[in-house]
Design a protein around this nucleic acid. Sequence first.
DNA 1: ATTAGCACTCGGAAGTTGAGAGTGCCAACA
DNA 2: TGTTGGCACTCTCAACTTCCGAGTGCTAAT
Lengths: 363, 363
Amino acid sequence: MALSERKKKILAAVVDEYIRTAEPVGSKAIAQSGALHCSSATIRNELAELVAMGYLEQPHTSAGRVPTPMGYRMYVNELMEKQKLSLEELEDMNRRLEAKLQELDATITDVSRLASQMTDYPVVALTRQVAATIKRFDLIYVDANTFIIVLMLSGSTVKSKLVRLPVSVDQKLVQRLSSLFNASFTGITEDQITPLLISSTERAADDTMGITSVIAAFVIETLTEANTPSASVSGENRLLSQPEFRDPDKAHRLMSFLSGGGYILPASEGLGDSSEVRVLIGPENVAEELKDSSVIIASYDAGDNTRGLIGVVGPTRMDYSAVAAKLQFLAAGLSRRLGGGEAPPEGMHNKLIIKGDDPNERR
Amino acid sequence: MALSERKKKILAAVVDEYIRTAEPVGSKAIAQSGALHCSSATIRNELAELVAMGYLEQPHTSAGRVPTPMGYRMYVNELMEKQKLSLEELEDMNRRLEAKLQELDATITDVSRLASQMTDYPVVALTRQVAATIKRFDLIYVDANTFIIVLMLSGSTVKSKLVRLPVSVDQKLVQRLSSLFNASFTGITEDQITPLLISSTERAADDTMGITSVIAAFVIETLTEANTPSASVSGENRLLSQPEFRDPDKAHRLMSFLSGGGYILPASEGLGDSSEVRVLIGPENVAEELKDSSVIIASYDAGDNTRGLIGVVGPTRMDYSAVAAKLQFLAAGLSRRLGGGEAPPEGMHNKLIIKGDDPNERR
DNA sequence: ATTAGCACTCGGAAGTTGAGAGTGCCAACA
DNA sequence: TGTTGGCACTCTCAACTTCCGAGTGCTAAT
């Protein structure tokens, strides 16, 4: 059932106010906040109905109202004014983003730290990669006991390692191995590297010292690492400034959970379009530990068939509007620079698409 | 002035008990804890004197006694029984250490995380490197617009990067650059790379497309990075399980400070011998934020002229004995594997040397 | 449909009390 | 002289009570 225009306004006012103050909000406060030209008594009636409908609740009789998850959901989906970032904010963020990205490569740690600084909430960032392959293979002969392996992976990552051997190798063997690996180990995925392939390479190279398997081990290790999603958590401690985490036990539980890492993955399903931001409110989260927190997730294109995910964690009473806007901007910026060339046009940060369950679809 | 044997025993008992329970300890508790065959009244007299001497204090009249920083210092220097780790603990730690070190390379993050898990306190780890140089330089030609830079640094680190150019290069130029860089950029430190050197290399290579400076930039960047001490903080959240951090504000302050990072450096001065563990108690810390916490620091040899530092942070009431022992073991293990070959003999974890200011030298 | 008025509820702050842990001191004792 | 039991005293902490006020729900008037 649809809400009347006035109910919407009132609900929005309650959520806004509650986000601001973290205290239950009363009818009087709403009446005074302008935007509504009616008295507190009227508002009380409306509030009572909103409670009955399940959008609000009272911590106890004769306290103000507090939004339920369903109330937040409605707010996020329809009510909240999509925040436009101020010019200074945009510039500031752009500056910091550029600074980060100018470094060697923007690591997942940098991304999460940056996001956490910008939003003032803890952030979990992670990447998920699709099967990496080797594009090119080189061995550099250093001396009789030493050579360097250089792998160029799909995408533009390069990995290298110094290998020291207890035995001597001659330059010829290194060269032979280099071309053999280049021939048979490029373009294949990790699970295509079989013991059979390794041993046949070993034979072909006439390698009696087991060097082939050392190299193969590094190849496998590198591919495994490249395929493993890496996660980074930053700013857990920012939780502590939120009044809902005054209880150290509660804070500790959530922070330990966050330090754990990879839990956010289930939420990433089907989050494709990079200008989409998903909001998960309280019980909508699958993880037990997040049932009374909210998570705002954005994904970005990190190039090389890789998608990155940025998740901001906060209390249900979090500043959805501001965080969503910032996150959307950040994800777009990252996609633009890391991903393919299709840069979104100017001002793309205005069309903020927020997706999530519709409250009416919920039981 | 020296403490009588009995006073020492009593002081040790107070500290032990306080570390265990986090509550002020009374005369009765000590009397019952054995080791002393006298009554609570006697102990009360002694306690009163220990308070007068400054080793203990009372939160208020008629509460138990709590150690002062000076009391902790005495405990650490003379009283505490140097804890020998149990066999299981040793094995467990060894196992985890091996597991970590078998991976590509033990990053500073891994070290700090491991230490934090072992001690159950937050840990700050960092490395300080002495001027790194390039030992070998290679360029790998990939295609007309692409080549790979491979740098082998002093020590056995290898860094590599893929470079894509907007212009075409021929294989000859790449080769020429490779040998030129190898000739003039190896064995020198970062500050010896002058614009002059770069431009003369550029001329010698007959490079009209500015490729030389791209390479030089990467060289400088890599050296800078190698010389920059990197820090990693793990397990901040473990603070929250300590009763002294029940106050969220206090916890927040310290955690933010820790997240910051590199503050521990001043304490690293003169910490050379790897089997030495330094303890800094409360006000002995220079950083304002640590004035009522303690830090236990060990250093290890990370190879390549690099020393690593592991700092465990906790309340003054922390388990000095256990943490010092574990940390000492960890540092020794890391030195053994990462550093030079001079492995300490079996059982080296028993001679635990703890160093710090002597209370008598303090004002 | 809206509003003013009013009685009612309930949580939390402030104040009160009592129990218990621990002390300091004294007198007796070895 | 050093040690011990005893006892009065102190102070904290937890439990309980009291009280204020914010906020409600309802009703009657507009």
